[in-house]
Design a protein around this nucleic acid. Structure first.
Length: 237
DNA sequence: GCGACAG
DNA sequence: ATCTTGTCGC
């Protein structure tokens, strides 16, 4: 799919924060999600010893959650991990992966926060702006906000708020599993973001799109990234 | 007194 | 994110 240029990449933490403030105002989380036939899940796996990462995008048919396309790319890590600035580390590679996609998905889901972010500009917001497409954040852990423990059953959810404002939901994707933190990234409202996650539950801790992407990313790494041979039988020098 | 920091 | 073995439960 075609990915238009949005901005150049900042090299410093201060510049990145400034860019977040500048772009946050362009995020739209007031619109319900329209028809979703194709949904993309994306994730990244890191090389075990080198500063390199593997970005993967998996497109699923919303109807039956079957995989229709998958693409993986590898890139050099160019930005450090700083809580609140994750997108600057992972988006460049994700964009490269999306650029190789044959079909443009109707919605995107990823591991990370949307507006449930200190500056209301999490990974899902940033990627959503770049792709100019509905994007939902589905993180494995808390970053900001207040919430209650969701019910014990799959699909149970509790609102996630910041200063009284509802920014997302904590969703139990599977009974007996730790909940997931959902928040809209761009071109989706809180209800639709939560609805999309609940509509793609597959019996595991993570919804199908993000789960498939996570596995695909690890597979991509395995082909060239992971260590080879056992630690004890490595070449001696 | 204060204290969750995405991946 | 990544390292890590066995183990408890369906």
């Amino acid at each position: 799919m075609h990915v238009p240029h949005l901005h150049d990449w900042p090299a410093t933490e201060a510049a990145a924060v400034a860019l977040q403030h500048a772009l946050a105002g362009r995020v739209n989380t007031s619109r319900p999600l329209g028809r979703v036939e194709l949904i993309a899940g994306c994730d990244i796996a890191y090389h075990l010893t080198e500063p390199r990462l593997f970005a993967c995008v998996v497109v699923l048919r919303a109807k039956d959650l079957s995989v229709v396309e998958e693409v993986a790319v590898t890139r050099e890590v160019t930005f450090p991990y700083i809580p609140g600035l994750l997108s600057f580390r992972e988006i460049p590679a994700l964009l490269a992966a999306f650029a190789e996609l044959r079909q443009a998905p109707d919605a995107v889901m990823l591991d990370g926060q949307g507006i449930a972010h200190p500056r209301r500009f999490g990974l899902a917001c940033h990627l959503g702006l770049w792709l100019d497409r509905p994007c939902v954040g589905c993180a494995k852990s808390w970053l900001v906000g207040d919430c209650a423990e969701p019910g014990p059953s799959a699909g149970d959810a509790a609102p996630l708020t910041i200063g009284g404002e509802e920014v997302g939901a904590v969703v139990r994707a599977a009974a007996g599993a730790k909940p997931v933190y959902v928040s809209p990234g761009h071109n989706v409202d809180v209800a639709s973001a939560t609805g999309l996650v609940r509509a793609t539950l597959s019996g595991y801790r993570h919804p199908a799109p993000t789960r498939a992407a996570h596995m695909a990313a690890n597979r991509a790494r395995g082909a060239t990234g992971g260590q080879c041979g056992s630690p004890s039988e490595g070449h001696k020098s």
